[in-house]
């Protein structure tokens, strides 16, 4: 697996030079969108999570391009991509790797598992047993793998893109809320528009579209972009706004479980990345509003009454956003 720094031949500057983040991001988006047709918001969200050093949960029906999105993203930033197909018989060691006794040296040698990659695609994560699921989730949170008592750090950027079929399908172990909480955002890809679907037929008829994705940035570029995201200013009013919004999920009568403090941190980080993608040096409430549903909704549990009314947690969050006053000078 290639972990080295890659230059794409167009001579764009390395990490030392301060290339404006939006330009680099736009190139990455362009590259990914050449494969994922007609889903700019999905691509944007995936990039946001990447730059915010979070993990992405894609929840949708099979065959809408979940895997393709992850692969295209990995190819566009020219970093290592590993794919794990979760099945009920998958063991934790199949993800983290195992120590194997080496006959010649007489020592145990660590065989790294697929989690040692920049982008780990966990397909149908809800098909694995809870034990295996939690092995991955520990890696996600701690950015390291502990096998036989030896911590092995994971290389950054590290992003898990897990896909999950909607919970009401057969043969699944839905992620418990505590584990859903570790994903920064959950998005749905959704069906393409008819035109996008037509284009897709043409494209897939000729060759494999993924092959055409040229790397648009290097791992070092991504690290530099992540550093730039850290410098994005969050005004006190906006911080307050985030806290108020998260607090509102905890008091909403429609919700049995509100968002955690971790959700607050995720929301601020995502908002920084989102603002940076727009080339803005500061977060505005609109960033928070745009991210509230993807960042918060999957962490919430609906109250029974709301469930009876067939409301979704996305709706509840949208209502909270629509009602919460934005920070204003008043």
């Amino acid at each position: 697996m290639s972990l080295g720094t890659h230059h794409n031949g167009q001579g764009h500057p390395g990490p030392g030079a301060a290339e404006p983040l939006p330009a680099a991001a736009a190139r990455i988006r362009q590259a990914v969108e050449s494969v994922i047709e007609g889903k700019p918001e999905v691509v944007r969200m995936a990039l946001t999570v990447l730059l915010a050093e979070g993990h992405l949960l894609i929840e949708d029906v099979p065959g809408v391009g979940k895997t393709m999105l992850a692969k295209a993203l990995g190819k566009a930033v020219d970093c290592s991509v590993q794919r794990v197909q979760f099945t009920p018989d998958l063991l934790p060691g199949d993800i983290t790797g195992v120590s194997v006794y080496h006959q010649e040296t007489g020592e145990f040698e660590f065989n790294p598992g697929p989690v040692f990659a920049n982008i780990v695609l966990g397909d149908e994560i809800n098909r694995a047993s809870p034990k295996t699921q939690s092995a991955l989730l520990e890696c996600m949170e701690e950015m390291q793998v502990s096998v036989d008592g030896t911590p092995r750090p994971l290389e950054r950027p590290f992003m898990v893109v897990a896909t999950q079929n909607p919970g009401d399908m057969e043969g699944t172990y839905p992620l418990p809320e505590a584990q859903r909480d570790r994903f920064m955002a959950r998005i749905a890809v959704g069906y393409p528009t008819p035109q996008a679907e037509l284009d897709m037929i043409d494209m897939h008829g000729a060759d494999t579209p993924l092959d055409r994705v040229a790397p648009a940035a290097s791992v070092a570029d991504v690290r530099s972009m992540v550093q730039q995201v850290h410098t994005v200013h969050v005004a006190p009013g906006v911080r307050r706004y985030v806290v108020d919004l998260v607090a509102a999920t905890r008091t909403s009568p429609a919700l049995r479980l509100g968002a955690s403090p971790r959700a607050t941190l995720h929301l601020v980080r995502a908002a920084r990345a989102y603002a940076a993608l727009e080339g803005r040096g500061y977060v505005v409430p609109d960033d928070v509003q745009a991210l509230a549903v993807p960042v918060l909704a999957h962490r919430l549990l609906l109250a029974p009454e709301a469930r009876v009314e067939r409301r979704t947690s996305e709706q509840v969050v949208a209502e909270l956003v629509a009602r919460l006053p934005i920070p204003s000078p008043r």
């Binding site: 307050r240 941190l265 980080r269």
Partner: peptide, 24 residues
């Protein structure tokens, strides 16, 4: 109402402590 007071007096109190720690 009448013209606004100084910006964000109230917001300074509770907001930053929780957020700034690990996000930057």
């Amino acid at each position: 109402g009448p013209r606004p007071r100084r910006r964000q007096e109230a917001a300074h109190r509770a907001g930053p402590a929780m957020i700034s720690g690990r996000s930057t």
